Simulated assay, not measured.
Amino acid sequence: MESALRQFAGKSIEDVRAYWNARPCNIRHSTKPLGTREYFDEVESRKYFVEPHIPRFAEFERWKGKKVLEIGCGIGTDTMNFARAGAMVTAVDLSDESLQVARKRAEVLGLQSSITFIQANAERLSEYVPVETYDLVYSFGVIHHTPHPENVIREIHKYMGSQSELKIMVYNRYSWKVLWILLKYGKGAFWKLDELVAKYSEAQTGCPVTYTYSRKSVKDLLHGFTVTRIIVDHIFPYSIQQYKQHKYKKVWYFAVLPKLVFRILEKTAGWHMCINAKLDKE
């Protein structure tokens, strides 16, 4: 983690905002006209087809009648499912372009009354979002993209009570994807690992900040929290070029791998580290 801190020392929140404004996450998951019901339905279908562990982790139905704070909502796929399930959602994102799409999505799906959208820098969340206690604070694949993730964690404390739950996903350092990036793009240059992972961590190359975590370092990050569960999941098995054409053809080495073996690999070397936590008892 020390090398990553040095690597990203010169990166700013504005660098991160510009990157996600240029291409909001999952924006190209559909070829239908942007903003239509058909577009949003296809975006959701594709996302949960390749990442079926997300609904299991989020447990959308569990939060009916509860207050959910989502940090980094993107274009709102999980946001809509919390709202559909009956939660009252406050959805925060740094990218105004992402929020524009998410707001349109809520309008098209008739969920505006259940969601409050706020543009905010999560490292200074309490300057944007009134401090109150939420039943769930949820952040999937976001905190590792901000220059100072520890600041986000400190802010999250303010929105949690003794019964609140935190669910976050951060990237797993000891994962197949990190190894794949190191071998494919770095040619084994492990001393450039943090730079390589950031550059190739997302569909659009050049992400300015991407931290990765081990089980130990994520517990260090979550200072003031008791981690109740950590699950590792998700390896993307498809040919990227085929996937861009909306075709699902597995690369040869995953195509020949038995499903059970692939699932074991996902559970041990998956890219997504999903963490459940609660505030430490005083």
Rank of each mutant, 00 (worst) to 15 (best):
R6W: 06
T77V: 15
Q163L: 00
L125H: 03
E61V: 06
D220W: 09
V89E: 12
P52T: 14
Y238M: 04
T90D: 02
S239W: 06
H157I: 02
Q242Y: 06
M88R: 14
E195D: 05
G206Y: 12
R62A: 09
A4K: 05
V251F: 13
N276A: 05
C25Y: 15
T268H: 12
P147H: 01
A58P: 13
L257E: 01
A198P: 07
P147K: 00
Y211Q: 06
D194I: 04
A102P: 04
D135H: 09
V218N: 01
I275E: 02
I235V: 03
N121K: 11
V178P: 07
A106H: 08
C25R: 11
F254C: 09
Y238A: 09
E282S: 08
H144T: 12
V170L: 01
T116D: 05
E107G: 15
I71E: 06
N21P: 07
E202S: 02
I118M: 01
C207P: 00
R23M: 08
K66H: 14
E266M: 00
P208W: 05
L182W: 12
G224Y: 05
Q119I: 03
K216F: 04
H223L: 14
S175C: 08
A277I: 07
D194R: 11
G188S: 02
F57I: 09
Y213N: 08
H144F: 07
S30N: 10
G76L: 07
F190H: 04
G188M: 03
T77E: 15
L182N: 09
L193W: 06
L265F: 08
